[in-house]
Structure formats: structure tokens, C-alpha cells
Amino acid sequence: MDRFVGQARLEWWANHATCLEEYGIDISVTVDAVGTWRATGRHADALDTTQREGWDFLMETDPHFSVMFPGEHNDGILVRVFEAEDGTLTLVEAPSRDGSVNITFDLP
């Protein structure tokens, strides 16, 4: 995959059995010639007040989410999410649950 532009889902897991929240995102992922991943996105739909409070709480608690792509049936890719003031989301690699790294998100 050199580029993926579409929708994905961010899931926030309290533990291996409990997903507390899911957020649809529009995402753009690119891979350069040396295999470095870059990913940015935005919430697919504007968050209402309750959703925004939940999002802010989860981001303050632990900004690590699993990103799930359409058609994938696995645990997703563990990423750390950063949100800019304009609402842009930046996804950065995070160690997987077993301590290894799945892929690299290296964003400017």
C-alpha cells in the first residue's frame, strides 16, 4: 500500500475485552520509498457536546487508540493520537500490546 485515503475507525480500549468508544475518521495514510508511514485525519462527523466531552476525557486519560481500516478483522494498529486546534488528527506509531511496533507513523 503506497497510499490509503478513506474512512477508518479509532477505538479506545479499556482492556482486551472492553471498547469504551469508537470514532469514525477520514484518514490519509502514505508510505514513502523507505517504508515510513504518515497519517493524518479528521473526525468524519462533527462531535456533539457529549461526544466531545468523552473524546477530551479519553485523550486526557490515554491518547492511545486502535485504528481499524475497512475490511480488516484484527486488533487494529495501536497509535497515539494528537489533535491540533483546527481539529486535525495526527496518528503516530505506538508499541503494540505485546511491546513490539506494528508500523511506523512518522509525521512532520
Score class of each variant (00 low, 15 high):
Q7K: 09
A94G: 13
A46Y: 13
D45V: 13
L78V: 09
W12Y: 11
G71L: 03
I25Y: 01
P108A: 11
G24W: 13
A39Y: 04
W55Y: 10
E93T: 15
D26C: 01
A39W: 04
H16L: 07
G35Q: 06
E22W: 15
D2Y: 13
I103A: 07
W12I: 01
V5M: 07
G54M: 10
F65M: 09
P63Y: 03
R42A: 09
L91M: 10
L47I: 09
C19A: 03
G87K: 12
D45A: 11
A84M: 13
G24A: 09
G87S: 11
I27A: 10
V101T: 14
R42Q: 11
E93D: 10
M68G: 00
I27M: 00
S96W: 08
V67F: 02
A94Q: 01
T49G: 12
V79T: 00
S96L: 09
V79E: 01
A8Q: 02
W55F: 08
I103R: 04
A94N: 01
I77D: 04
I77Y: 03
D62G: 15
E93L: 07
A44T: 03
V31W: 06
T88G: 04
V79N: 02
T88H: 09
E83D: 10
T104G: 03
L58E: 05
L91W: 01
N15I: 06
G35F: 01
D48F: 06
L78E: 06
N74R: 00
G54E: 01
S66Y: 11
D106L: 02
V81T: 02
S28D: 15
G41V: 00
E83H: 06
L58C: 07
A46F: 06
P108L: 13
T40Q: 12
F105G: 04
M68L: 12
T49L: 15
M68W: 05
G71T: 02
G54Q: 04
F69M: 09
R52G: 05
A84G: 12
D75A: 05
D86T: 12
Y23D: 01
D86Y: 05
V81W: 05
A46P: 04
G99D: 02
T61K: 12
S28C: 11
